[in-house]
Simulated assay, not measured.
Amino acid sequence: MTEPGLRERKKEATRQAIRAAAVALYRERGPQAVTVDDICARAGVSPRTFFNYFDSKEEAVLSLALTPGGVGAGLAARPAGERPMASLRAVFTQRFEQVENDPTVQERALLLREHPDLWARLAQTSRFVEEAAAEAIAERIGRSVDDVYVRMTVLAAFAATRTAFTCWHPGAGMGLVALVNQAMDALEAGLEPPRA
């Protein structure tokens, strides 16, 4: 895998600066009190630059970890014959290992705890990622993207990651990847209650 070029690194740095500014402002002022212009001023970019990267302030705040392209490519690269839930777990944990210590991701976890109403917006933002996952799983097992097994598997995996994020306290307790694995383990065990 080749390293990204200077242009790609600069683009990613700009994307990260916008995300960090958006999350910080949301925590400082609350979601309703933040505008795109506020985010641009904090990040040192123009509104035109902002909209080259994000469609809305919500997308800048909420689209931090998983992307449709990343999930689709990650699933396509998994070994043939691997169980779908195992493939989803591998892709999710690999990505969360990369971002678990990112201060912006940690700040966003705290933001979601402070403003639980943002989970509904996060679900809207995540639907494109879920769709990419469903398409990749359907292709891997030779079923329709609207097959009940495909949809149920993908939605269960995403529910597990949401549960992990909900239970995550950055800087204290279990880490995000460990929580994702714990949630996936519970799914694969048929949601049997843990023993005392």
Rank of each mutant, 00 (worst) to 15 (best):
D146P: 07
A73K: 15
A157E: 11
E135Y: 08
L155D: 11
L6G: 02
L118D: 10
D38I: 00
L66T: 09
G171L: 10
E192M: 13
A132I: 03
A13S: 14
A160S: 10
A134N: 08
A132E: 11
Q106I: 09
T35P: 03
R140N: 09
S56T: 08
A164T: 01
A109Y: 00
G5L: 13
A120M: 15
R162Y: 06
E8H: 12
V148R: 14
L155T: 07
P193R: 12
L62V: 09
S87W: 14
E8I: 05
R113E: 07
V148D: 12
P103L: 14
K11M: 10
A33P: 01
A109I: 02
F54H: 08
A90Y: 06
L64E: 11
M85K: 11
Y53Q: 06
P170F: 05
A17Y: 03
E192K: 15
A189H: 12
R29C: 04
D38S: 12
N101V: 00
N181Q: 13
I141Y: 14
Q98L: 14
S63G: 12
P194Q: 09
E97H: 13
T153M: 04
K10Y: 07
D37Y: 10
A60P: 08
L176W: 01
P116Q: 12
D38P: 15
A13T: 14
Q16R: 14
E59G: 02
V99M: 00
F96Y: 15
A178F: 06
L25H: 00
R83Q: 15
A21V: 05
A76E: 13
L66S: 04
V177P: 01
E107G: 04
P31I: 00
P194G: 10
T125Y: 04
Q182M: 12
K11G: 11
A132N: 02
E192Y: 08
V71H: 03
A156D: 13
A159D: 11
E131H: 00
A24C: 03
F158T: 03
V154D: 03
V34G: 06
T166N: 07
E59W: 02
D37P: 05
G30F: 09
P194F: 08
V91C: 01
L112W: 00
E135R: 15
A138C: 12
M85E: 08
A65T: 07
P4N: 13
R89T: 04
A76L: 02
V61R: 05
G142P: 08
A183P: 06
R29P: 13
G30R: 05
R9E: 13
G70D: 04
K57Q: 10
E12Y: 03
V23T: 04
Q16F: 08
R95K: 15
W168C: 02
R9Q: 14
R162Q: 09
A172P: 07
G30K: 07
C40S: 04
E107W: 02
Q182E: 13
D146W: 15
E12F: 11
Q106H: 14
E97S: 06
